[in-house]
Structure formats: structure tokens, C-alpha cells
Design a protein around this nucleic acid. Structure first.
Lengths: 151, 151
DNA sequence: TCGGATGGTTCGATCGTCGAAATGTTAAGG
DNA sequence: CCTTAACATTTCGACGATCGAACCATCCGA
């Protein structure tokens, strides 16, 4: 019998461990957590239609507009991100990550992906389906409690 | 069929969501992530024999000794943590959290625990066992890749 | 008793973040 | 057109978390 408290503890350990991994990546690249976070968000936005803008990035990161400008200054100076003003609404700035940044991330996270894939070899499709359902339910529960607290 | 990349994405979403939850808690208590992290570590140490000390805390948080002193200054000033010099080795400082801090954390995380418990009602013991194994394997894989990168 | 080692704290400097003000751009009304 | 308001982003001055180095107190081995 698996107690719920064990599952809670495992989830917590997992987040701590993921956190440390991201932290290590940041150290190697001489980048802070915030900058990494921003990079990930800008990269994600490539799949969601429009490119990321500074203001949307600020909101997603729960950061002030001015702090976001600093983040982008750093990312631009380090050659990871490109700022281009939108041609149709010249107030807006479009953010794009250079391929170099993508390759860098891939190089670092590939070993992790491989290790995870290997660790998951012992699970058949039915079991993976259970896990996926479980994770989705946990995400949903956490998000809804948070939404309720914000109200 | 559940693709591994879906599982990877779910894990990432989960860590992001957990992160946001902790962030919200911090905002409500006017405490920074570092301070929360420290509180959690000091609380955890209660079950591991000796009470936490500033230097062990610094190492666990990947923080300098002086920064850790600041963290403890803040936690002491806000009435969450007590510093007492060890009686046998008077160089050492023992850290203890006040019951008030424990109650505070419980009050905030109880809704989350309840929501998770409810979300997990649809899973029987065998399925929970699968999930627990999966999480443990993922934690182990992440930790070992990180250890390999540090070397 | 002395000297090095250990555990914490203090101090000055750096840097990420904030809020307010400034700059440049677009849209709506007269 | 011209003015005004709204918008997107950046600049500026201040605050505070973190760092490394120096410092103080304590313990332990020679």
C-alpha cells in the first residue's frame, strides 16, 4: 500500500532535484535562474503563434517591466536572444533565441533525457498511461488550488 | 501510447506549477524563496537526529556563509527561527523553528494536500505503486546525471 | 600553553530587482 | 491635421540579497 504522504514527498523531492539540475546548468553557462527561465519562455513561445514580447515575458515571470529589460539586456549581450521591433506596430519588440542557445540547451539536457528514457524502460505503455494521468491530475489540482488562493 | 516526450513535458509542467505555488506562499508571508527554502530545510532536519546548523544550511542551499547569516537574521527577526549556541561545542549554533512557523506552513499547504488527495482518489493501490516507482526512478535518474556532470 | 583548525558573524562591494519618470509609438476625437 | 490618451519599452535612482575577505570565538592536538 502506497500512502499519499509518500507520493507527496516524492513529488517534492522531484521538484527539488529538478531545481538543482537547472541551477547547475545556470552555473555552467554563467546565467542566473531568471535568465534561464526567460530563455525557456521565449523558446516555448515559438510554438504558440506569435513571438514573445518583453511585456508578456514580464507577466509570465512575475517580474517588473524594468527588471525584464535588464534580463533581455543580459541575454542580448551574451548572444542568446535577439530583439527586433515589430514592423506593423513599432512599439512592440519581438524576441527570438539564436540557434546557438537552442543547441546549448539541447547539449545539456540530452543526457538527462537519455537517463530518464532509460529509467522508464521498465514501464509498459499501460503503466506510462497511468503515470501521465496521475501527473496531469496533480498539475491540475495544484493549479486550481493556487487559482483559488489568488482569487 | 504515451510518448516519453509527453512525460517529460508533464514533469516540467509539474515543477513549474509547484514553483509557482511556493512563490505565492512566499508572497503571502512576505518571505523570499531563499528564506522559505531555509525554513523547510531546518524543519526537515528535526527528523534527522541533530538540529540544523548555519554551515550545513549554507551547504544545502548552495549559499555563502555570510548570506546564510543574513537569511537567519531575517528568519529570527520575523520570529520563525531560534538560534541557540550548542552547550557542548559553543562554536556551533543550533537552529529551531517555532511552532508558529509550523502552523503557518500547515495552514497554507493543507488545501493543496487535500486537493491532491482528492485528485488521487481515482487511482487504486496498484496504480499508486506504479506512480511511486516511476517518480523514484525519475528522481534517481536526475540526481545521478547531475552527479555525473559535477564529477 | 600554544597554534592551527573550525563555526559564525561583520563589513564593503556587486548586481538583480523595483517603482517612477522618460521616450517613442499608435489610436481616437475634435 | 493636432491633441490627448493609451500603450510598449527603456532609463534612472534606490533598495536589498548575495559574495569574498577579514575577523572573533571556540575547540583540539602537540
Amino acid at each position: 500500500m502506497v500512502d499519499n504522504s509518500i507520493l507527496v514527498r516524492l513529488l517534492r523531492q522531484l521538484t527539488v532535484e529538478s531545481d538543482r539540475f537547472a541551477e547547475l546548468f545556470g552555473e555552467r553557462q554563467r546565467m542566473h535562474r531568471t535568465d534561464l527561465n526567460a530563455l525557456a519562455l521565449i523558446m516555448d513561445a515559438r510554438w504558440t503563434g506569435e513571438p514573445m514580447s518583453p511585456s508578456r515575458l514580464a507577466e509570465a515571470m512575475h517580474l517588473s517591466a524594468s527588471a525584464t529589460t535588464s534580463v533581455l539586456d543580459r541575454l542580448e549581450a551574451s548572444g542568446h536572444v535577439e530583439r527586433t521591433r515589430s514592423t506593423h506596430d513599432r512599439r512592440k519588440v519581438e524576441l527570438r533565441v539564436y540557434d546557438k542557445a537552442l543547441d546549448l540547451g539541447r547539449a545539456f539536457f540530452t543526457p538527462l533525457n537519455e537517463a530518464l528514457t532509460q529509467a522508464w524502460e521498465g514501464f509498459d505503455d499501460a503503466e506510462k498511461e497511468v503515470v501521465a494521468r496521475f501527473l496531469a491530475a496533480s498539475i491540475e489540482a495544484t493549479a486550481s488550488v493556487r487559482a483559488g488562493l489568488v482569487e
